[in-house]
Nucleic acid binder design. Structure first.
Lengths: 227, 227
DNA sequence: GTCTATAGAAGGATAGAC
DNA sequence: GTCTATCCTTCTATAGAC
């Protein structure tokens, strides 16, 4: 089994892998059964034999990809680290994962927008409120210190997702725009692992200092630091 | 002209508007000439009469949308404001624009990924390096004070875009996830106008303070501020 | 299980009447 | 300019031989 070639793989598995590639590249609407059969090196009627229809095949692929993404997301926030360590860990791990799977964000965001019915069943399992409640409770002391209230958690969580997901969702755009300036996308992502973490931590620690509505607190804080 | 109904509009314009709606909703691959004709209330052969082919019609629509987005982006950074004022202005204006055009981010990002050849000609006009050089030069004093080097500008610009674009690109996802937690997307965006600005400003002002690699610089800066 | 052949529907595009 | 009718291609899906 160690020297198993593509052709030795089970047919169903080969279909699934080819379909994954094609769907990620072209989306559901842009993909053709024939393309998938070609990439899997077989007759297209075999796809119907194993998966009944294009839609069912897509659902199988979509579920796998959604789960893959999800599994990488949540566990990052478990474990016995400080808030700052968790943030650094998240950006390093999640951006590394996306470097290996650069097309997942664009694929998922697009299909969610084009076929929202299709994704409801996957989202039913996700309780995002748990995620931010868990995070908040675990790090209440640190967050209190920075004047971050529980109500800010949705903004904070989505901000972290923005910082990692957007560059990949907009990869084609950035590659094109950066190219003219002599910047390589890969270098930019590598740099982002620490930039995003520094940025996030710095913002959290000092939001009260920069918020004009909190002038009084700022002055109080400044005094504290000076003494 | 004031009481002009849909039916009085010029045919070409009606086609263009219907096409814009359908393409934004379903993407190029998912849109059907027949859908557009139906929405415009006319025979589908008229679309060919005016636009020759589906692709040409799409190009016209795409160019209009890309320009609309672009025109809203750049001018935000002109004018004689402080860096902080510009950042606040950007988040307020850009998020307000997206509130009125919530599907543009998902549409643009998707088409850019699915049909990159098609967008090269639009991107040729954009020099993003100019944008960040301009910003950097205009606010060199403020940025120096915060130890933000010119090399950080790509990270900063893309971070600002992330914070506004991502929530709309992922709108369907967020609506679904927030719904269970009793959060309304519109409220979240409204709150984001100030949150993102506060967050950005706070991060910029204090990145050196939070970056462990810059301990020495932090102390130097603290001293400067105290005297 | 895998292939060939083909049904059957849908989509883009055009010719030609008015 | 606008409509009807129709061509041609492409796509999903199935029937049936092996």
């Amino acid at each position: 089994m160690q020297f198993m070639t593509d052709h030795d793989k089970q047919t169903e598995e080969r279909i699934f892998e080819a379909a994954t590639e094609v769907f990620i590249e072209k989306g559901l609407d842009g993909s053709r059964i024939q393309d998938i059969a070609d990439r899997a090196g077989m007759n297209k009627s075999l796809l119907h034999y194993y998966y009944r229809s294009k839609d069912r095949l897509f659902d199988a692929v979509f579920e796998m990809i959604a789960m893959k993404m999800l599994k990488k997301f949540a566990p990052v926030f478990e474990g016995d680290l400080t808030l700052e360590e968790k943030i650094r860990f998240f950006f390093r791990e999640h951006l590394s994962f996306l470097q290996k799977n650069p097309r997942l964000p664009a694929f998922l965001l697009n299909e969610v927008n084009r076929h929202p019915e299709r994704i409801r069943k996957f989202l039913a399992n996700i309780n995002i409120e748990n995620l931010w409640k868990m995070l908040y409770d675990q790090h209440k002391d640190e967050l209190d210190q920075y004047n971050i209230t529980r109500e800010k958690m949705p903004q904070i969580i989505t901000t972290m997702a923005s910082l990692t997901v957007f560059p990949f969702a907009a990869k084609m755009l950035l590659v094109e725009l950066f190219g003219k300036a002599g910047i390589k996308f890969d270098d930019y992502i590598e740099e982002r692992k620490t930039f995003a973490a520094d940025f996030m931590i710095s913002a959290l620690k000092n939001m009260n200092r920069s918020n004009p509505e909190d002038e009084s607190k700022i002055k109080k804080n400044d005094n504290k630091k000076k003494k």
